[in-house]
Computed example of a mutant assay.
Amino acid sequence: MPERFLGIDTSNYRTSAAVYDADSGEWCNRGSLLTVPEGAIGLRQSDALFQHTVHLHEKIEALPQGEVRAVGVSTRPRAVEGSYMPCFLAGKSVAHSAAHLLSVPLFEVSHQQGHIAAAALSAGRLDLLDSRFLAWHLSGGTSELLYVECGADGLPDCTCIGGTTDLAAGQLLDRAGALLELPFPSGAALDELALTAEPQKGFRPRVTDCRFSLSGMQNQVENKFKTEKPEDMARFALETVANAVIKATEQAKERYDVPVLCAGGVMASRVIRARMEKRFGSGVSFAEPTLSGDNAVGVAVLAARLYRKTGADGQ
Rank of each mutant, 00 (worst) to 15 (best):
M233P: 05
M233F: 06
M233E: 09
M233D: 08
A234Y: 08
A234P: 12
A234H: 09
R235M: 15
R235C: 06
R235G: 03
R235K: 08
R235A: 11
F236G: 02
F236D: 03
F236I: 07
F236Q: 08
A237W: 03
L238Q: 15
E239K: 09
T240H: 12
T240K: 12
T240L: 12
T240R: 12
V241I: 15
V241F: 03
V241S: 02
V241A: 12
V241H: 01
A242G: 13
A242E: 09
A242F: 09
A242M: 11
A242N: 09
A242S: 15
N243G: 05
N243T: 07
N243C: 14
N243S: 14
N243E: 14
N243D: 07
A244K: 10
A244H: 07
A244I: 06
A244D: 03
A244Y: 05
A244W: 07
A244G: 04
V245G: 00
V245Y: 02
I246P: 00
I246S: 02
I246T: 13
I246Y: 02
I246F: 03
K247Q: 15
K247N: 08
K247S: 10
K247A: 14
K247L: 14
A248R: 04
A248T: 04
A248P: 00
A248E: 04
T249W: 05
T249K: 05
T249M: 07
E250T: 07
E250L: 13
E250H: 12
E250I: 06
Q251T: 06
Q251D: 10
A252H: 06
A252C: 08
A252D: 08
A252N: 08
K253E: 10
K253T: 14
E254T: 12
E254S: 12
E254H: 11
E254A: 15
R255N: 14
R255A: 13
R255I: 01
Y256I: 01
Y256Q: 12
Y256N: 12
Y256L: 12
Y256C: 05
D257V: 08
D257E: 14
V258S: 03
V258I: 13
V258H: 07
V258M: 10
P259D: 13
P259T: 13
P259Y: 12
P259A: 14
V260Y: 01
V260F: 05
L261H: 08
L261S: 10
L261D: 06
L261I: 10
C262K: 04
C262T: 10
C262S: 13
A263S: 15
A263E: 01
A263W: 00
A263Q: 00
A263F: 00
A263N: 01
G264P: 02
G264S: 10
G265V: 04
G265R: 02
G265L: 02
G265D: 05
G265F: 00
G265H: 02
G265I: 01
V266H: 02
V266R: 04
V266N: 04
V266L: 10
V266A: 07
M267A: 11
M267V: 04
A268G: 13
S269W: 06
S269P: 06
S269F: 06
S269E: 11
R270C: 09
R270A: 13
R270K: 15
R270P: 00
R270D: 14
V271D: 04
V271L: 07
V271Y: 02
V271A: 07
V271M: 07
I272F: 02
R273S: 04
R273I: 05
R273W: 01
R273H: 04
R273E: 10
A274V: 00
A274Q: 14
R275A: 15
R275C: 12
R275S: 13
